[in-house]
Nucleic acid binder design. Structure first.
Length: 881
RNA sequence: GGGGGAUUAGCUCAUUUGGCUAGAGCGCUUGCCUGGCAGGCAAGAGGUAAGGGGUUCGAUUCCCCUAUUCUCCA
């Protein structure tokens, strides 16, 4: 008998082995980029390992290391890769996952990529070769591409040809988007089924057929083309390798489990969920799904929050909120949680992954707080929706089916997933009209698609340069050439994007808005309405193109706007340090907005700032401004050196980055920052906080103004006080004068009220005295000089006092007439009188119309001279009874 | 970026073809019952119906804009 001792690697070892292997092949190992993406309009989250290298593929940036390997945190929840609804129901979908990858940028190509992948899998990880299949691109006639014979011939050296599969364009031709770098790819698949199963069905036939145990493990992409917007492919001068291997899947393979969720990546979390829910994992399919959902989503939201993306009500923040709510909902429905629980599992995740990803550890308190608040908020929404549902049920008792429109409304407006509605319907013995629901869904999708159509034309190259230089730290003008431009159409609007070889224009980044200004050349002047960053490219937005794009142009940044913006940006840095000094070092930047009018700074802090704290911060900032600290700026500092200087690092730095450090007194404020700043703090002039508020659990927001704006603020406040004084005839003590005024006013109001009451009483008395008894009815008619509200009061008061009352009142204002009729309740039935009907008839006399209730009605008209006739008519009606 | 909903007393929410001088529960104030508390009874205060504009004799209700917020789609 043969004894096989299998020493399973744990997930930490598996990750390390991958990175060590490629290090031995001269790869630079770089840390994971943040999962949350800034400065890319096409992407909210990192959804593949290659994202942080996109600029290299696009040729917008130079290559620092030709060979790189890493593990990258990824999130797939929207756009092309939307796996959210699958997660938990099977054994292998995830929202957040790690992607192991190795890259070559114009260095090695297919031969080495294939050889190393094979070596790592079979010799280092020791995966049985007889379980592996590979695929190569089989060609595609629509793109006029033949089979990838180069890859096929290389694979032949490692694996028998009957294990090589020709793949379709869908599976084996990788594209970044509608346009851009792309190329054929080779996938490595592994068959994890039992020997018996393998005998029954050939593994080769299951490749790419969604069998949970015959799965793709590694994708090797050979980037050699660029897709143009007309669909044509152009060969790239420098060819690249881009590979991706799902870490959680690899763990499953190497640990011999049947599910990613059974590996040591997920089990500790799942066991914790089981523990606090009092249920056992593996007992009940629905509960198991819920536990997997929660385990997966906990990872996604924790990493997102650690990377600076807080849940919110739109964009990326809303994606995070939705993931969290999905987890809450599964816990609510299938694990019977009614109180926040996800935050309690966080500890396990942090102890498990905090070493590899230190951001989890350092932000643990904030993550926990944010998750708890979100859970509470969603449980509230949930109970509102349930109430709505119950209202619907009780008002539609005889229906057996829940209206699809209502089901869609619940989904669309209250965030109720359709399966939850179905579940609740089932409990009442009802079904849901799915046709109607799906119709509502389709309509909404069509609407959204139409609204989101952006037509981007290809870049038109004017001068073939790749690098653009930013001059804006030193100058606000430049002599530049256009490198390229393109036209963008959004709905009925059209604008242009221009890239210059050098530019003083600062592109929106790090919270600082982009510069505005203009450029001149060939006797034309064209305005630049905004400057944006697309990855590393500085893009200038204009409404028109110069008629001749060649030649040189003179660029001008709007100086006054830029200077005011700089003041606010520098003030933001000083504020940041002041907050840390006053509140403590737990204060971390969570968001920032800087423009020429004001600054907005979001930061982690757990309670409302007191008046004194706000004042202390203001005082400290203004003190630093008056110290007139000279700006120290260091460009192109290796990030490691910057960290040593104690620079406050934000999210967003990538591997090997050379960073810029902005210092205002090395013992006070040192920050990594790409923005533009005042030359010395004195330029800021003064600083004033105008609001302090909460924007999310554990996150506060300060809005402040500086320089001219602050000066205006103080001046207008002073002016206000001066004007108040003047109005009060310059008293010695303004406050006392106002207090006196207030109490006098109060007294007068009281007296006036009593006087009015007396008058009304007199008026009421006079009216009552004027009553005529006609057919047993107390008829009163009068024209009064009161507004409609007072007439109403009077009418109600008289109704309470006079029996058998028929009251008709009129007033006149602005050449218009109003009538009001009040009738005692008993007359309505006894004499069949209806104020509403009567007034319609009577109002004809004043050329108007009206209505109301049987006992009280009003009307308006354009003919005041008809009032007497109206009274006469009313009297005739009563007399005629 | 586009759609749908919400915003009414300190809090949670009512208010159906536009008209009952906008109501309830909890909380608050006062008084009473009880040895005290818990509790009970009674009276009362508290509303520019988010803000602005329009339609109308009349708008919490219908329309438009703004703000805040929730939610879905992209």
């Amino acid at each position: 008998m043969k004894i096989i001792i299998v020493l399973k690697m744990n997930s930490i070892e598996i990750r390390k082995t991958f990175l060590d292997f490629f290090k031995s092949k001269q790869h630079e190992i770089v840390p994971s980029a943040p999962m949350v993406i800034k400065n890319d309009p096409t992407l909210m989250f990192t959804n593949a390992g290659m994202n942080q290298f996109k600029d290299i593929f696009l040729g917008n940036t130079t290559v620092k290391f030709p060979r790189i390997a890493d593990t990258q945190k990824c999130l797939r929840v929207s756009g092309k890769h939307n796996d959210l609804e699958e997660v938990g129901h099977d054994t292998y979908h995830h929202t957040m996952f790690e992607m192991l990858g190795n890259w070559s940028f114009g260095d090695y190509f297919k031969k080495e990529a294939i050889a190393w992948a094979w070596e790592l899998l079979t010799e280092v990880y020791k995966i049985d070769k007889n379980c592996l299949y590979v695929s190569v691109f089989g060609g595609d006639s629509s793109d006029n591409l033949s089979k990838d014979n180069e890859a096929y011939d290389i694979w032949k050296n490692y694996i028998s040809e009957d294990r090589i599969i020709d793949g379709s364009k869908k599976d084996n031709f990788w594209e970044m988007g509608d346009t851009g770098p792309c190329g054929p790819c080779s996938e490595i698949h592994v068959d994890l089924r039992s020997e018996e199963e393998k005998k029954k069905v050939d593994g080769k036939s299951l490749v790419n057929h969604d069998d949970p145990l015959v799965i793709e493990i590694w994708n090797l992409v050979f980037i050699e083309y660029n897709r143009m917007s007309d669909g044509k492919l152009v060969s790239l001068p420098a060819k690249h390798i881009d590979t991706g291997m799902g870490f959680e899947r690899l763990c499953m393979v190497l640990q011999g489990t049947k599910s990613n969720y059974d590996t040591d990546v997920f089990q500790p979390i799942i066991q914790e969920i089981a523990k606090i829910s009092g249920k056992k994992y593996g007992d009940n399919n629905k509960a198991d799904i819920a536990m997997r959902v929660i385990a997966d989503h906990l990872r996604a939201i924790s990493f997102a929050i650690a990377d600076g993306q807080l849940p919110s009500n739109n964009k990326a923040g809303y994606v995070i909120r939705r993931i969290l709510r999905r987890a809450v909902r599964y816990g609510y429905t299938f694990l019977d949680f009614r109180e926040p629980f996800i935050n309690e599992i966080l500890g396990v995740l942090v102890s498990q992954m905090g070493d590899m990803f230190p951001e989890l550890k350092s932000q643990k308190d904030l993550i926990k707080k944010v998750i708890t608040e979100e859970e509470l908020a969603f449980l509230r929404t949930l109970s509102q929706g349930i109430q709505k549902f119950e209202n619907y049920i009780s008002s539609n008792k005889n229906s057996q089916e829940i209206n699809g429109t209502f089901a869609f409304e619940l989904f669309d407006t209250f965030g109720f997933p359709i399966d939850l509605t179905q579940l609740m319907a089932k409990e009442q013995g009802l079904t849901v009209d799915m046709v109607g629901f799906n119709k509502g869904m389709e309509e909404q999708k069509t609407r959204s698609r139409q609204a989101a159509v952006v037509d981007t034309e290809d870049w038109v190259i004017v001068n073939p340069e790749t690098e653009t230089e930013f001059l804006g730290y030193d100058t606000l003008t430049s002599e530049s050439k256009i490198i390229k431009f393109r036209k963008i159409k959004v709905k009925d609007k059209e604008y242009f994007q221009l890239v210059f070889d050098k530019t003083p224009f600062y592109a929106e980044s790090g919270g600082q808005l982009g510069d505005k200004g203009w450029f001149e050349g060939n006797s034309e002047k064209i305005f630049i309405t905004d400057t944006k960053k697309e990855n590393n490219l500085i893009v200038h937005l204009t409404e028109t193109l110069p008629t001749n794009q060649n030649g040189s142009f003179k660029l001008f940044v709007d100086e006054s706007k830029r200077r005011l913006t700089e003041n606010n940006h520098s003030a933001t840095h000083i504020l940041h340090s002041a907050l840390r000094a006053v509140l403590g070092t737990h204060v971390e930047q969570k968001g920032s907005l800087v423009n020429d009018e004001r600054l907005r700074f979001d930061f982690s802090h757990f309670s409302k700032m007191s008046e004194k704290e706000i004042k202390d911060v203001e005082t400290l900032v203004n003190k630093k401004i008056r110290e007139n600290i000279i700006l120290e700026e260091q460009r192109n500092l290796p990030i490691e050196d910057a960290r040593k200087m104690g620079a406050v690092a934000l999210f967003g730095e990538k591997y090997g980055d050379f960073v810029r450090v902005i210092t205002f007194d090395k013992n006070y404020s040192v920050e990594l920052c790409g923005g533009t700043h005042a030359k010395s703090t004195g330029q800021i002039g003064m600083f004033k906080i105008v609001s302090e508020s909460a924007i999310a659990a554990g996150v506060r927001r300060i809005e402040a103004i500086t320089a001219d704006q602050a000066e205006n603020f103080f001046n207008s406040q002073l002016q206000l006080v001066l004007e108040i004084k003047e109005i009060l005839k310059n008293p010695n003590d303004v406050l006392k004068a106002i207090a006196t005024l207030q109490s006098e006013n109060e007294n007068l109001n009281k007296q006036l009220g009593e006087f009015k009451k007396g008058q009304a009483l007199n008026l009421k008395g006079d009216l009552i005295n004027s009553k005529e008894n006609i057919n047993g009815i107390n008829f009163i008619s009068a024209k009064v000089d009161l507004d409609m509200a007072s007439i109403k009061d009077l009418a109600f008061a008289m109704k309470a006092e006079v029996e058998n009352l028929f009251l008709i009142l009129a007033n006149e204002s602005d050449g218009k007439a109003n009538l009001s009729i009040m009738i005692s309740d008993n007359l309505i039935t006894e004499k069949s009188l209806n104020a509403s009907n009567l007034i319609r008839e009577i109002a004809k006399e004043i050329n108007g119309g009206g209505g109301g209730q049987p006992f009280y009605a009003t009307a308006g008209g354009k003919n005041p001279s008809g009032i007497e006739n109206a009274f006469k008519k009313a009297k005739e009606i009563i007399e005629g009874l």
